[in-house]
Amino acid sequence: MGSSRFSSAAQGAVSRRRLLAGGLALSAAAALPGCKSRMSGLLTGADAHPADYPTVKAVEFMGQYLAERTGGRLGIKVYAGGQLGSETDTLEITSFGGLDLNRVNFAPLNSVEPMTLPFSLPFVFESVPHMRRVVDSEVGEEVLAAMEPHGLIGLCIYDSGARSFYNTRRAIRTPDDMAGLKLRVPASDLYVAMINALGANAVPIPFGEVYQSLAQGVIDGAENNWPSFVSARHYEVATYQSLTEHLLTPEALVMSKISWDRLSPEDQDLVREAARLSVGEMRRLWDLRVTEAKATIAASSVAVNEVEKEPFAALMRPVWEQFITTPQQKSVVERILAMREG
Results as ranks from 00 to 15, higher is better:
Val302Asp: 03
Tyr211Thr: 01
Ala162Gln: 09
Leu198Ser: 02
Ile324Ala: 10
Ala193His: 04
Glu310Gln: 15
Ala222Met: 03
Leu43Trp: 02
Leu253Lys: 00
Thr291Phe: 06
Ala145Asp: 14
Gly221Asp: 06
Pro108Ala: 02
Val230Asp: 04
Val128Met: 12
Ile157Asn: 00
Gly72Pro: 07
Asp220Gly: 03
Leu198Gln: 03
Arg170Asn: 01
Ser160Phe: 06
Asp287Asn: 11
Leu19Asn: 09
Pro265Glu: 08
Arg233His: 12
Pro118Asp: 14
Gly71Leu: 12
Glu251Ile: 00
Arg169Pro: 00
Phe96Trp: 12
Ser256His: 01
Ala21Ile: 04
Lys294Ala: 03
Arg163Leu: 11
Asn167Pro: 01
Ala31Asp: 09
Arg16Ile: 09
Leu288Pro: 01
Asp261Thr: 07
Ile172Asp: 02
Glu321Asn: 08
Val279Leu: 04
Leu109Lys: 01
Phe207Asp: 15
Pro204Tyr: 15
Met1Tyr: 07
Met282Cys: 10
Ser95Met: 03
Ser27Leu: 15
Ala193Leu: 02
Ser27Lys: 09
Phe323Ala: 04
Met194Glu: 10
Ala80Phe: 10
Ala338Cys: 06
Gly221Thr: 08
Val333Trp: 07
Leu247Ser: 05
Ala162Asn: 06
Met255Pro: 00
Ser242Cys: 14
Glu245Pro: 02
Leu20Glu: 13
Arg284Ser: 14
Arg5Ile: 04
Ala274Arg: 04
Val112Ser: 01
Glu92Leu: 11
Val135His: 02
Arg73Ser: 09
Leu155Ala: 02
Ala187Tyr: 12
Val333His: 07
Ala29Gln: 12
Met1Gln: 04
Val104Ser: 03
Leu109Arg: 01
Pro114Arg: 10
Gly280Arg: 08
Val304Asn: 08
Ala193Gly: 01
Arg169His: 11
Asn102Cys: 06
Ala10Arg: 11
Met115Ala: 05
Ala295Thr: 15
Glu87Phe: 04
Val302Ile: 06
Asp267His: 13
Gly71Ser: 12
